[in-house]
Design a protein around this nucleic acid. Structure first.
Lengths: 113, 113
DNA sequence: CCATTATATTCCTTTACAGGAATATTCCGA
DNA sequence: TCGGAATATTCCTGTAAAGGAATATAATGG
């Protein structure tokens, strides 16, 4: 996971662009129109998404059609696998450990785990 | 999906904190030591993660034990479901369409699909 | 109450980044 | 070749956020 993916998606307009492109590729004009932002801002945000590897662009005459790349999303999905235990495990041992930490004010003598 | 989750994870130190906490809850001191950053910076980053709902804190005497919350990760995982088609579908029609757009503009192209 | 330990907060400075406005670039058709 | 449409880039400015240093707060043992 590169942090550039997160920082790219952290900006609300860029997040919306990604949500838009989820349905279908779009031109810069369509994007700026649907988001209600000016064309230069749309281009700038798309540049950030492009540099972050989140979108691809294809030239069509003097238009640019932007589409999502699969890699960053697949990467996020893979990254999240190691966090699934947070809601899939019962997590009993860890909760117990926290309980012990809270009850034992000086953990120097009694080691429960 | 709130953008605050992405902006919280966009900062490299905070991302590392999250990766650390994936294994087990930790105190501020342990976190600042393992990341090689000063304690005030660790506290500040943890504050951001707390406000973003990414971590929870439990008081243990004058220590604070931080642990991951499940919700934001579950939320990201759910959010990614609607992007799985990017790598699970063959997506042939769309690729073909884009290919046509590109080839129509080039004078000569012997490339086959 | 005092000293110590652990953590949080404040102030300051620097830097990155977003938006606005203007301009440059590219492509098409007449 | 010229004009217009679509897009990209540059310059400027304001703001938010990160790190450093110092300090404040809270809990513990004596």
């Amino acid at each position: 996971m590169k942090a550039s993916i997160f920082s790219a998606l952290a900006e609300p307009n860029r997040f919306q662009i990604v949500e838009l492109l989820q349905s279908s590729p779009l031109t810069v004009g369509e994007i700026s129109e649907r988001l209600g932002i000016r064309q230069p801002q749309a281009s700038k945000h798309l540049r950030v998404l492009l540099d972050a590897g989140i979108v691809d662009v294809i030239a069509d005459a003097n238009r640019r059609i932007y589409k999502l790349r699969q890699e960053p999303f697949q990467e996020m999905d893979d990254w999240l696998i190691s966090y699934r235990h947070l809601w899939e495990d019962r997590f009993d041992r860890l909760d117990a450990y926290l309980q012990v930490l809270q009850n034992n004010k000086k953990p120097q003598s009694d080691e429960e785990l």
